[in-house]
């Protein structure tokens, strides 16, 4: 037995390793299935998928791409938060400084921006794909509803993120967007006041949109995504061709 193999074995036999990994490295079909079922992240997915489900031209990976873009947005968003202060006097300068002073700052911001555009696009395409396949039909009707909530959350994440650069286009876009809330029946004025935290777009609005953008909506979206993926398994896997 070589030195590396002995080190490898002593690590695998240690109490610490075995407290983390309850089973040996999966070597046959049964233990591989167990490895998926026993993992908190993997268990959301079905252990086995039907052959048609992995055909690229059936799903075009649209849901997976949307989720991948969400992860990209979370990671780049965390990076950007290190250099951004949601203050009416500082926000715009911070954006300029991220682009000019921070190492990889321009790259990070552009990845965040493009991933955001693409996520809206792919979520939309994913919804179209599900619609044209009739994959919303029972028993998957509730997962369609979860998906509609996720579409709403995606759009709200996009909308709240739009204000954060605090430039002219952001300011007036949010002014228009929140004025649209003014046309809602019954709760028109209150909903606008709650959104803006005042009677016009200002420091309170920036802070509110920031908190919604970086904390509230991503958390809610993550919960709904977990349910969304888990329901695919519970509803019998990806729908087959008709």
């Amino acid at each position: 037995m070589s030195f590396l193999e002995r080190v490898d074995q002593s690590i695998r036999r240690s109490a610490v390793w075995r407290s983390v990994f309850r089973q040996a490295y999966p070597s046959d079909e049964r233990s591989r299935a167990m490895a998926v079922m026993n993992n908190v992240f993997l268990h959301l997915h079905p252990v086995r998928v039907r052959q048609h489900a992995v055909k690229f031209a059936y799903t075009f990976c649209l849901g997976g791409l949307s989720f991948f873009l969400f992860l990209v947005l979370v990671v780049t968003g965390v990076y950007l938060m290190f250099f951004y202060v949601p203050s009416a006097t500082q926000a715009y300068t911070d954006i300029l400084q991220i682009q000019s002073q921070v190492v990889f700052g321009l790259l990070t911001r552009n990845i965040h921006r493009w991933a955001a555009h693409l996520m809206v696009f792919f979520v939309f395409l994913h919804m179209m794909r599900v619609f044209y396949h009739g994959a919303y039909k029972p028993p998957r009707e509730f997962n369609w509803v979860v998906g509609v909530v996720l579409l709403f959350l995606t759009l709200m994440l996009s909308f709240t993120g739009y204000l954060l650069p605090w430039d002219q286009i952001a300011y007036w876009a949010i002014t228009i967007g929140t004025n649209m809330a003014n046309y809602a029946p019954l709760f028109n004025k209150p909903s606008q006041l709650i959104l803006l935290g005042g009677i016009e777009v200002g420091q309170n609005t920036l802070l509110r949109f920031y908190v919604l953008h970086i904390m509230a909506f991503p958390l809610i979206a993550a919960v709904f995504m977990a349910v969304h993926f888990w329901r695919i398994r519970k509803d019998g896997g990806i729908s087959g061709p008709l």
Binding site: Y79, F82, Q101, V102, V103, F104, G105, T108
Partner: peptide
């Protein structure tokens, strides 16, 4: 490596 570069303070 990239993260360290990103978070390194700019003292100028």
């Amino acid at each position: 490596g990239g993260t360290i570069g990103f978070l390194w303070p700019n003292l100028a």
